[in-house]
Design a protein around this nucleic acid. Structure first.
Lengths: 250, 250
DNA sequence: CGTACTATTGAGCGCTCTCAAAACCAGTGG
DNA sequence: CCACTGGTTTTGAGAGCGCTCAATAGTACG
């Protein structure tokens, strides 16, 4: 029951040894030679530690960042100082796209655990994309994907109750892990309950209660950050579509 | 007190006679000759009537749409059939960006009132942007802007109460109108209370009560769709930043 | 073993939803 | 000019979900 964290993180690490930009871009239709050209502008840094910042809100925008292993949290802060978690980025995913327009970051990105991150200097990427139409095409798709994804999130926050949000979150994480070839039913959540709650527009207590209830209902097993999904179908139904407006129990 | 609708809509119409792609793109740093090239691929259609669809969820993605005059509502539908309003598009604004990735629209766009819409065939736009670096640059900015904007919306839905959401909505509309050179304190809301509520993740009743309370507090005057902001500062404070966690009144 | 932090659990309250009715408006036809 | 109709908006009353506050429990680390 112990060290599930180590197991899961190791799994991620192993799976992502080969997770370079190749893995990210090849399926999207880039020619191998173009990926190599892209590869030349990418900077690889030493592993970052949990709590390290990739960038902070307001900083000059210079680069996009691709998670190679580990995970990243992006968040913003409003006039009150209230912080809002905008998303979690898993291996293969990109962050920093919001900074392009104003040439300044509108949110902060913080590493949640020891992570490997690729930095892509945006200026050079844009130059390159002007000479490689397929790269430009993928860039447009990438940005559009982000928009569509946030639309889904808006739907979730605007219409779903606490259980549905939490279920949707778990199903979403599960799907993204599966997409990267990782175990979709047994994984570690690198973020705190508070972060999850904030992301879902709930209080930490409500998220905690949700986990407990799901466990009591046999939908999953949870031990701190380690989560084991036992009934993915039920979670999907709960998260994506409530079969009936009101469910009466007895 | 009557016919404010006509006044405001007329104002929009007049102000947007000149609101072509030139107005949209020139301030963004496109050379005049490039704007002209862009102009040649744009289709202009006869005025659309309230309720007409620009596109529907699931349809093949072909074009982006720029509002010349009038207004557009974009919304999505989930598995339950629940509909979620994702945004309102005013003159000069663009819609359809979410469809690029999957080559299919992930939301629907519906005209709220008689409107003039420019259609930009996406394939030709992408081709063009591959030959005009500055256009490519603006496209990236446009997409990034959409992402940053949705981030703000997520913050609103996740952390703000009903009054704050409504205030933020009004301030936002006001600012966007001002940006287009229209009156920022006296305008008509082309969308229904139900649409506003849905957009803000509230019930129509709560929105209605909000309008009434704001009016009683002297923040604005409201008569059906016609809104007159009397104390923009107070609304900004309420919508963007609550000065203190709790405000005690007596 | 003590400290600091995170997570869980409990109790009570308040905001917002739901349900319901009334008011209001626009359009139509008598 | 007025009654009728379908729609939206407003207003009211009650209930429930999720927040807040608070205490406890569990974990990591020195």
């Amino acid at each position: 029951m112990t060290a599930p964290k180590a197991i899961s993180c190791e799994a991620i690490r192993v799976a992502c040894e080969s997770c370079s930009l190749r893995a990210l871009c090849l399926p999207m239709g880039l020619a191998l030679q173009d990926v190599d050209r892209l590869d030349t502008i990418v900077k690889r840094s030493r592993p970052l530690l949990g709590g390290d910042h990739l960038f902070r809100e307001g900083e000059r925008f210079r680069s996009l960042y691709v998670v190679k292993s580990g995970s990243v949290k992006s968040s913003t802060r409003d006039a009150d100082g209230d912080t809002q978690v905008l998303g979690f980025h898993l291996p293969g995913e990109i962050t920093g796209l919001d900074g392009i327009e104003k040439n300044a970051h509108t949110c902060s990105a913080q590493v949640l655990e020891t992570s490997l991150i690729c930095e892509i200097p945006y200026g050079r990427l844009e130059e390159l994309s002007a000479t490689i139409p397929s790269l430009q095409h993928q860039m447009y798709r990438l940005l559009s994907r982000e928009i569509a994804y946030e639309n889904e999130l808006l739907l979730l926050l605007a219409t779903r109750n606490a259980d549905e949000r939490l279920a949707a979150f778990l199903v979403n994480m599960s799907g993204r892990l599966r997409q990267r070839g990782l175990c979709a039913t047994d994984f570690c959540l690198s973020m705190s309950r508070h972060d999850i709650a904030n992301y879902l527009g709930l209080s930490a207590e409500t998220v905690s209660r949700g986990f407990t209830r799901f466990q009591n209902e046999g939908l999953l097993k949870v031990d701190r950050k380690h989560v084991q999904l036992l009934n993915v179908t039920a979670l999907e139904v709960l998260g994506a579509a409530t079969p009936a407006p009101t469910i009466h129990r007895f």
